[in-house]
Simulated assay, not measured.
Amino acid sequence: MGPIYLDHNASAPLAPEVLEAMRPHWLASGNPESRHSFGRQPRRAYEQARETIAGILNADPSEVIFTSGGTESNNLALFGLADRAQHGEARHLVTSPIEHPAVSEPIQQLEARGIAVDRVEVGADGRVEVGAMADRLRPTTTLATLILAQNETGVIQDVARLADRAAASGVPVHTDAVQAVGRIPVDFRGLGVATLAASAHKFHGPVGVGVLLVRSGVSLLPRVFGGGQQAGRRAGTPAVALAVGMAEALRLWQGDAERRLARWIVLRDRLESLLVAGLGRDQVVRTGPEGARDRLPQTLHVGFPGLDGDALLMQLDLAGVAASLGSACASGSSQASPALQAMRVPDDRLRSSVRFSLGATTTDDEIDEAARRVIDAIRRIRPPTPSE
């Protein structure tokens, strides 16, 4: 067996059906903003993609803003919501310490501008106490933000409860749902949030396109200027092929969601069981809560106490297993994961935790072979015990 790709949380390979859906739009002429026949056809495809995405995520098509991906969607939401306050007015923001860099770094920028930021504590199981977040809301709070499914650990957060509590104070809630959409059912209306970010390449769609859902009636200042596209909320010529690809990838997910969910849980738990059987429970420590459905169904985050994570990742790469130490967006950093630090993960696991993430094409045989290769790699690099 060749290389085994278990890093779908970083990026999932493009589905062949998505490529075929996009192909005619790469080759077509016409700007969808043009008012002639060459523009009307791509415009219809673009709006159909918007309707498809809105229908699956339980939003209105008018609430869908196409962006270049999850990073832009998160930035548009955070700056667009925070900057609504009048210049000079005291402003405040509530967030968690387990956000993706696409959220935490914009928040640092807002903090540098003088916005007060409260970061609540997170439990050792990776779950944020949303009651504590709600208790931090003030009359000057302009927004609260909480990731829907944590990108490293896969732990699912109770965003709907936070949104419900925040609504009583009139505070909009943003959620980064980049790792959740296309992995678990996501109901924009049901969550009650003001804004929600998603990105196509996480669920076998194309790189370079995402959406920000903005609830009707929510005021959002634009970040990109130079045209009146998308009701003036995000200027730029529509990328029709990318929008079509995202809609097709999400449609494929919806049509196969029940089977994928069940299968992913089986494969994820099988990988953990095989690692434990080969190495021992004390040498394989899963991160996150006990409940199988409290984590993303296709994400397994485990620590191997006492190992050097970089050395392990190198050995896995040589063995043909693609995995990750955490967020791909922070992979160049030598710093320990802020999310794991916030969870107070012990030092012997802090730098030896690995994320394995599955996709729609992951097979039983790949899981079995990956487990064998991981076990062999760990046995090669694990320091000998004093009794050996």
Results as ranks from 00 to 15, higher is better:
369 E>Y: 11
337 S>P: 02
328 A>S: 14
171 V>N: 10
138 R>W: 02
174 H>E: 04
242 L>Q: 02
381 I>F: 10
292 A>C: 02
230 Q>C: 00
124 A>T: 12
289 P>A: 06
155 V>D: 02
81 L>A: 00
179 Q>T: 10
6 L>Q: 14
65 I>Y: 02
273 S>H: 14
233 R>M: 13
206 P>L: 01
372 R>E: 12
37 S>N: 02
56 I>G: 11
224 V>W: 14
284 V>R: 08
222 P>E: 03
368 D>T: 11
314 M>I: 10
257 A>T: 01
114 G>I: 11
136 R>A: 15
263 R>W: 00
302 V>L: 15
271 L>D: 07
226 G>H: 08
238 P>H: 08
150 Q>P: 00
235 A>P: 04
372 R>I: 05
226 G>M: 06
140 T>H: 11
359 G>E: 11
298 Q>T: 00
164 D>H: 07
170 G>E: 01
278 G>H: 07
20 E>K: 15
233 R>V: 07
4 I>D: 11
385 T>L: 14
325 L>T: 10
192 G>H: 02
355 R>L: 11
212 L>V: 06
61 P>A: 04
116 A>M: 03
313 L>E: 07
304 F>G: 11
274 L>G: 12
75 N>M: 12
181 V>E: 05
8 H>S: 11
380 R>D: 08
50 R>K: 13
373 R>Q: 06
299 T>I: 14
17 E>S: 13
75 N>T: 15
358 L>N: 02
241 A>V: 01
18 V>Q: 07
338 P>H: 08
60 D>P: 01
7 D>R: 13
69 G>T: 08
384 P>A: 12
330 A>I: 01
292 A>Y: 00
98 I>L: 08
69 G>W: 04
33 E>N: 15
173 V>Y: 07
158 D>M: 01
